[in-house]
């Protein structure tokens, strides 16, 4: 794989996106929502209603899954639990935000009639597909990480004593810089595969939405306390996701059928 060609295509993708900023609106919107929602629930509402989070017995019980923070007050523990759960939204941000970009990656080039000249160059299928995936991932990941920075800054500024140090943990780092990007790699590479196998952008997006379902299931399981992933489990999960991504890259190259794309798609 020639990195110069991947870089050239990636630069083109980013330049193109910089002139079509509306395409980044979904990721911006999700990031803002991910910032507003947790602070509204964990800080603003208890403050406005005067009802402490620790007064809700169910919440206190569920927050017990986050072990190792017994020194915190019940309210602080619930707040920590909520902030940890909402952290998962930042994992979904680059995926949901970039899904439309990734789903459009190949079919979009075909519909704009720019794919054939591109395939007439020495660019290999692997180089093309990796550049397309990175072109969708990097801008949305950058926005998502910036949002995450604001999120953690907000926690430091507004959370109950002891919550911020507990949040700035190995588990948070693992989620933010290891599992999140790895999950995004898998999802977006899957969307690229779909984009190279269907022959219109709407179908690609319909299938792309399905990729969110397993991730949403993990999110719901976390919220209900049914699933709590420790740092070790997260490390292994990230490793597994990277492995799956490598397999998906190989699969996407193997099933990318230049012949069909050029001759059967209209």
């Amino acid at each position: 794989m020639a990195m110069t060609r991947v870089r050239a295509l990636l630069a083109k993708e980013l330049l193109d996106l910089s002139r079509n900023r509306l395409a980044l609106l979904p990721v911006g919107f999700i990031t803002i929502l991910s910032l507003v929602l947790p602070f509204a629930i964990a800080v603003a509402i208890p403050m406005l209603t005067g009802q402490e989070l620790g007064s809700d017995a169910d919440l206190v019980k569920v927050s017990g899954v986050a072990v190792g923070h017994e020194s915190l007050t019940p309210s602080a523990r619930v707040q920590l639990f909520l902030f940890q759960q909402f952290l998962l939204l930042f994992l979904l941000t680059p995926i949901t935000g970039a899904m439309a970009l990734a789903a459009h990656a190949v079919i979009g080039e075909k519909q704009a009639r720019t794919l054939e000249p591109l395939l007439a160059t020495p660019v290999s299928t692997g180089e093309l597909l990796v550049a397309k995936m990175l072109g969708a991932l990097l801008p949305t990941l950058a926005i998502s990480l910036a949002g995450l920075g604001l999120y953690l800054g907000g926690i430091v500024a507004t959370a109950a004593p002891g919550v911020a140090p507990a949040m700035l943990s190995l588990r948070t780092a693992m989620l933010a810089i290891w599992v999140g990007p790895a999950a995004a790699l898998v999802s977006l590479q899957s969307a690229i595969i779909i984009s190279s196998r269907v022959n219109d952008a709407r179908t690609a997006q319909q299938f792309g939405v399905l990729i969110i379902i397993p991730l949403a299931a993990v999110l719901v399981a976390q919220f209900t306390g049914a699933l709590w992933l420790s740092s070790t489990m997260l490390a292994l999960l990230g490793l597994g996701l990277v492995g799956v991504w490598v397999l998906l890259v190989l699969l996407s190259v193997a099933i990318f059928d230049r012949d069909s794309i050029l001759t059967r798609w209209r």
């Binding site: 630069a11 083109k12 330049l15 079509n20 591109l118």
Partner: peptide
């Protein structure tokens, strides 16, 4: 088959790199 949002020079630069 040109990339519409890129200028002529940017289109050609990308291909020169490819």
């Amino acid at each position: 088959g040109l990339w519409d949002r890129l200028t002529v020079r940017e289109n050609l630069r990308t291909y020169a790199a490819l």
